[in-house]
């Protein structure tokens, strides 16, 4: 609540043209937006662009943001929607060739994991995350990385709680399958 009040004060200053106030918002929420966008798109140049776009869209909509939702949730919603759009765009241009490359990547991870036993588990989980179906990835990012509860996740993604739960269950199975023989 206190944080929300502080955010609203900072936003009021930003609305009046205080660029430093907006910069504070960007710095504060950059890690959260990065978790969502890079979690969804991987560490790619597009992720950086989408991350920037999240804050630019928010800047344009400053006058319309009334603070009904927490700023973090609002930015997460923009971030997840832009990431899903970016994935759709990518999907349209993905050829069979790149799909095969992705599958090859799966094998690479297994081999890498076997040959480099000391490889950081966190990095492997990140790579495994990139291979998840985007529908599952979004629930994993929101629930397991960002720590939203299932109700908040369902609100952000605009899907029923039951769907969130079933996707989480399937995502865990998939992740485990991807990571089998690598970290466990």
């Amino acid at each position: 609540m206190k944080q929300r009040g502080e955010d609203l004060k900072t936003l009021e200053k930003a609305r009046k043209g205080d660029h430093m106030a907006f910069a504070r918002i960007v710095r504060k929420y950059e890690p959260m937006v990065a978790n969502v966008v890079i979690g969804m798109l991987g560490n790619t140049p597009e992720a950086d662009d989408v991350g920037q776009e999240v804050f630019i869209r928010f800047y344009r909509a400053l006058d319309h943001f009334r603070g009904e939702a927490a700023l973090g949730t609002y930015l997460t919603r923009i971030a997840i929607n832009l990431s899903l759009n970016e994935l759709k765009k990518k999907k349209r241009t993905v050829s069979l060739f790149t799909r095969n490359q992705q599958n090859a990547g799966y094998d690479d991870i297994s081999d890498e994991g076997r040959s480099h036993e000391k490889k950081d588990n966190e990095e492997l989980v990140k790579k495994a995350l990139e291979m998840l179906d985007p529908r599952f990835r979004s629930v994993v990012v929101l629930r397991m990385i960002e720590g939203y509860d299932t109700k908040e996740t369902s609100r952000i993604l605009e899907i029923p709680v039951g769907t969130v739960l079933s996707r989480l269950a399937r995502a865990q199975k998939q992740l485990k399958k991807i990571l089998e023989n690598v970290i466990l």
């Binding site: 960007v26 990065a34 978790n35 560490n43 991350g51 588990n121």
Partner: peptide, 29 residues
């Protein structure tokens, strides 16, 4: 195994390249 995966995801943090906020502010300007 699931607990371990979830712990790794919970502690995973992603970062944009350095200078991200400056790039955003530059675009806004």
């Amino acid at each position: 195994e699931i607990t371990e995966i979830r712990t790794n995801l919970k502690t995973a943090s992603f970062r944009f390249k350095p200078g991200f906020s400056n790039r955003v502010l530059e675009k806004i300007r």
